[in-house]
Design a protein around this nucleic acid. Structure first.
Length: 117
DNA sequence: GCCCTGACGTGAA
DNA sequence: ATTCACGCCAGGG
């Protein structure tokens, strides 16, 4: 058996994880890779997303880098589209950054976990 | 085949 | 906060 999943499977795994990111939340490339069973393959996630058609139903915009910043050239069309999609879901940008403690997927400050009665 | 680049991450200085 | 180095590896030239 292979110690590593074949490329095709890796792509499917990554896409599957991205599809699971909830509305209004964001996940980092590393987090997606991790949950896809591909630790330290953050760059592969970026590559897969780049190859993925923008017209697909994939919520690619919910994937940002570990600093809560959009990893696309600031000012580019792609950058604007990702930011607009996220803001449309209620995600707030502060000086170009997203507070991962609040909008990150499955973080300790998840409002659902700390919700008061 | 080799070399460089890149939608990244982490840790150290 | 910023810079540097290293790990990882698919594609393109």
């Amino acid at each position: 058996m292979s110690s590593r999943p074949p490329p095709a499977d890796s792509h499917e795994q990554i896409l599957a994880v991205v599809r699971r990111i909830p509305y209004g939340r964001v996940a980092s490339y590393g987090q997606v890779a991790d949950r896809a069973g591909l630790p330290r393959r953050a760059r592969l996630v970026g590559h897969v997303l780049r190859c993925a058609p923008a017209a697909s139903a994939l919520p690619w915009h919910r994937v940002v880098n570990a600093q809560g910043r959009i990893s696309l050239a600031p000012g580019s069309d792609a950058y604007r589209e990702q930011r607009e999609r996220l803001e449309g879901e209620g995600v707030v940008f502060i000086r170009g950054r997203i507070d991962l403690a609040r909008y990150g997927w499955q973080t300790s400050l998840d409002p659902l976990l700390w919700a008061e009665p």
